[in-house]
Nucleic acid binder design. Structure first.
Lengths: 100, 100
DNA sequence: TTGACAGGCAAGTTGTGACTTGCCTATAAC
DNA sequence: GTTATAGGCAAGTCACAACTTGCCTGTCAA
């Protein structure tokens, strides 16, 4: 009776705002909380509060998708996509060669 | 200002019961609703009602992860993992060779 | 044609998760 | 020291999604 694994991972990518945060960190890695807030508002047009983004980042960090590094009063956020590997390993995707 | 794509996909895999259904269809493809209900109870120890599973299957079908085929009074469910490809394409996973 | 079986539809309940609000700590600039 | 900046903590609000409940439709066997 196998248990469901990585519930935190699926919860993390289940929210649209968190997915946009991952997009943003993919575009420019190592941003601070305030940077992310600013760019989400500017580029993606969604006006979320600082606290909301902070909570989203905590969820992403718990899922292992984001690692943080403190430096003085700044905290830099780095993306780590390796946990996503477990998804395609769990439900293998049939290889489909474009031109055999 | 890019829009978030595939919200249905992430919603679908965001629920633990639906992930177990995908596990079950990976193990044995083309099951009917009642078969899935039975095996979820037996093998995975979760006792969900028929209606609950039916609604889960509808969500999975809307995400393109499950396709259905009617035959008489039976409806067979087939898994399709290809939508999962968009996840690893959106946030590329760094290739890490085991032994360089 | 009547009963059993496989599945569908729709309204109601409830728990969880996203977001806010308010206040607090720590580092750096002046 | 004082002030501004970067971030944290915790309780409260609210909406949505999972699940239930009850009834209905369609297919097949007797």
């Amino acid at each position: 009776m196998p248990v469901d694994s990585d519930p935190d991972l699926f919860k993390a990518i289940g929210d649209a705002t968190r997915r946009t945060i991952l997009d943003e960190l993919t575009d420019r890695d190592g941003q601070t909380l305030f940077e992310i807030c600013g760019r989400l508002t500017m580029k993606h047009g969604l006006a979320s509060s600082r606290q909301a983004i902070s909570q989203h980042l905590a969820v992403l960090e718990q899922a292992g998708l984001v690692h943080t590094r403190r430096q003085g009063r700044y905290k830099f956020h780095h993306i780590d996509t390796s946990p996503l590997r477990s998804i395609v390993e769990r439900w293998p995707i049939d290889r489909e060669e474009p031109n055999p």
